[in-house]
Amino acid sequence: MLDTHGRKYVQPVIGATAKGLIQVGLSANQVTMVSFVIGFSSGVWIYFDQPILAVIALWLSGFLDAVDGTMARLTKPSAFGTVMDVTFDRIVEISVILGLAFRFPEVMWALLLLSVSIIFSMTVFLTVGAVTDKSGMKSFYYQAGLAERTEGFILFTLMILLTPYLLWLTLLFFVVETFTGVQRLLEAKRVLQAREDETDETI
């Protein structure tokens, strides 16, 4: 939700950073790799009880993840870059969840539920992107929802910093992510049904 409606407010900073990195000779895919390494380190910092460093790494990774997309659009978009971007995003999330799970094994069951809800929501998201011909700023059809990446980062941040409430924050994230998956599933049914109806009308 915040990604969809709030991106316009931070895009000037993202755009300026993207142009600066292009000027120094970096490619979008190189920035994607840097973003991935920084983001993956977040889970390591969590495990070693360095929550501030974990949060900084997470948000810096998220910022660079937005920058690399802008860089791609300013230069030459790469299909493999999209694959890298989506894949690395999920690995960063896995890193955070594993860091929390190993640091706080007593809530591992809740973190497992959260992982299931993310798999569900992302399965809908990626499947719809694969079967629809709509596209937006990204190189695939982007489904908005209650929990987009910024909401996920906010909830991950709260989970990292407010560990006495980790169980309840994880369950909240699970509910929000599951709701988003159902939201996207229903929206996918509407979009794809409308496309089928348009096809039938042209026959």
Results as ranks from 00 to 15, higher is better:
1 M>N: 07
1 M>A: 15
1 M>K: 10
2 L>F: 07
9 Y>I: 08
10 V>C: 09
17 T>F: 13
20 G>N: 08
22 I>E: 03
24 V>G: 13
27 S>F: 03
29 N>P: 10
30 Q>D: 03
30 Q>N: 01
31 V>P: 01
33 M>N: 11
40 F>R: 05
44 V>E: 00
46 I>D: 06
47 Y>I: 03
47 Y>D: 04
53 L>T: 02
58 L>E: 01
60 L>T: 13
61 S>W: 12
62 G>F: 06
63 F>C: 08
63 F>A: 13
64 L>W: 00
65 D>R: 09
68 D>M: 02
69 G>R: 07
70 T>A: 13
71 M>F: 03
72 A>E: 07
79 A>I: 12
79 A>Y: 14
80 F>T: 10
82 T>V: 03
83 V>K: 04
84 M>D: 02
85 D>M: 10
85 D>W: 07
85 D>S: 13
86 V>L: 10
88 F>I: 09
90 R>Q: 12
91 I>K: 07
93 E>F: 08
104 F>T: 15
105 P>K: 01
111 L>T: 14
112 L>W: 14
115 S>C: 10
117 S>R: 10
120 F>K: 01
121 S>M: 07
128 V>D: 05
128 V>W: 01
128 V>T: 08
128 V>M: 06
129 G>W: 11
134 K>R: 09
136 G>H: 07
140 F>R: 01
141 Y>G: 04
142 Y>P: 09
143 Q>N: 15
144 A>N: 10
147 A>H: 05
152 G>Y: 04
153 F>S: 12
153 F>P: 06
155 L>E: 04
155 L>N: 00
156 F>V: 06
158 L>K: 10
160 I>L: 11
160 I>G: 09
161 L>M: 13
165 Y>P: 07
168 W>E: 13
168 W>D: 12
173 F>K: 02
174 F>I: 00
176 V>A: 07
177 E>S: 10
178 T>S: 15
179 F>K: 02
181 G>F: 05
182 V>Y: 14
183 Q>S: 05
184 R>M: 08
186 L>Y: 12
187 E>G: 15
188 A>H: 11
189 K>S: 13
191 V>E: 07
193 Q>S: 15
194 A>M: 02
196 E>F: 03
196 E>G: 01
199 T>L: 15
200 D>R: 13
201 E>A: 04
203 I>T: 12
203 I>P: 11
